[in-house]
Design a protein around this nucleic acid. Structure first.
Lengths: 258, 258
DNA sequence: ATAATAGTGTCTTTTAGACAGTATGAT
DNA sequence: ATCATACTGTCTAAAAGACACTATTAT
């Protein structure tokens, strides 16, 4: 912390300062269940939660023990909350290089019994196969994937039920309004794979309908066909592969069709 | 702050805590210049900034003196950053009951020379006429409205240029993708007034074209005509008034027209 | 009468939506 | 041959886009 003559009068000590600054991460993955050979996978959106241990590393009873919680931890003064989230994701699961997106601040005075603790919430999308190398941290007894339906809302630590609720809303919105779906997919993918990702969070009939979606994907400005590339992983018939291209999408509710 | 046997082992003092927790607000307004009678107004998006005084209330030289800054201040432990933003907006301008929207956290370690200070950024939309009752706070020598073009990016305090840049991006996006435009408009409005608001942040030809927009507004599910209500404030011809209706709008880049 | 804004008529083009049908290739 | 998936053909209805045109009313 810098300090010099000019600024010393602005010593912030006259204001109460927070007792802690933490960063939480909602780690989402989509599990692809391959029901049979040569068929598109059944996909489901899942959230990784950590079961809080009964005792901490020093043998003392842990706060909110036994409840499920988002991974996270204290932010240090040398980093931003987003960097902390990225670091903790890496510590928690061994995964690096995944984009981490901030989506909210949780600073209700009574949200944490330990004091005035401000938490920044982020979400990250991790491909399923990378989660196999996951490991629990000191404070966590167990790690598990929950689908949105099987979440036990009343067994969540702190205000994590509110944070998770917001996280699901944000990822759903972002999946439909941005190209983050690409985080769930391989570099190139078939129309049915993209469709399966989107169907985890929407039941829009224009997306659900095979023919409509297969036609529509060709006219989307942010997706292009990978010429000459085909795969048989979703059908016996070699299938066209697509990829996302960087485009800024400007949409408006005033010009769109309703 | 609560403290009991169970939680005392989790004393957060072993972590460094932030030196301050602040809340900043980008106060936007749209100035309506009535060029002549019976004509739609010329509108322009403006941002309210405060010029930092040379000396503070105790007569000490002020940090970042003379630069322009967003209104804001320290958050107290009894409130959330959003409540603080609302309170400060009220103190700053005397305006109550305006929705304040959080859009980002600024926590770069070196962003404030006074220490490790975390700022939550919000934006608020204030109807122009309410800004006339505005008054400067202790720390501020002057208050002024800037259009996006006339902003002096290199004369802004702290990292406020980055915050303002993000604020403009967020409000532009929200104007096109949500119904916040209503904050800039009276309860009921003509198509040309809504059009003027949107044209402050877009030049989409479907919005710019009079006939197209006048037709489109009738088919938008979140806008309805106010039956029997007409006004002559935008033309000699009595003109249909519209209002926003509460509807949840779900859009997707995969189903929209491009 | 003029000028300016609001709004309609009408035509063309594009897209959505539905449904039937064809193509492919492992089994 | 069968079957599931990946397409294409074709029709209809709706909407977008363009442009000319009419309507109203203070001045």
């Amino acid at each position: 912390m810098k300090s010099n003559k000019e600024v010393k009068h602005y010593d912030v000590s006259r204001y109460r300062t927070p007792d802690g600054y933490t960063s939480d991460i909602a780690v989402f993955t989509i599990t692809s269940e391959r029901t049979k050979a040569y068929a598109p996978p059944k996909m489901e959106l899942k959230l990784m939660l950590i079961k809080r241990a009964d005792y901490d590393t020093e043998g003392n009873p842990n706060i909110e023990a036994g409840k499920w919680a988002l991974p996270g931890g204290f932010v240090t003064p040398e980093e931003t909350a987003q960097e902390a989230a990225s670091r903790e994701l890496s510590e928690e699961t061994g995964i690096d290089g995944i984009p981490v997106k901030h989506f909210g601040v949780y600073d209700q005075p009574e949200r944490d019994p330990r004091g005035w603790i401000i938490s920044n919430a982020h979400y990250a999308i991790v491909p399923e196969h990378q989660l196999f190398s996951r490991k629990a941290n000191d404070d966590a007894a167990d790690v598990e994937l929950f689908s949105v339906e099987e979440l036990e809302w009343n067994q969540l630590a702190f205000d994590h039920s509110a944070i998770i609720c917001d996280a699901i809303a944000h990822i759903s919105r972002d999946l439909l309004q941005t190209t983050v779906a690409k985080q769930f997919l391989p570099e190139s993918f078939t129309y049915s794979e993209l469709q399966a990702v989107l169907l985890t969070i929407t039941d829009d009939k224009a997306i659900r309908n095979e023919q409509a979606f297969a036609r529509k994907i060709k006219s989307l400005p942010f997706i292009e066909a990978v010429e000459g590339q085909k795969t048989q992983r979703t059908s016996k018939l070699p299938t066209q592969l697509y990829r996302f291209v960087e485009t800024d999408i400007k949409q408006s509710i005033y010009t769109a069709r309703h």
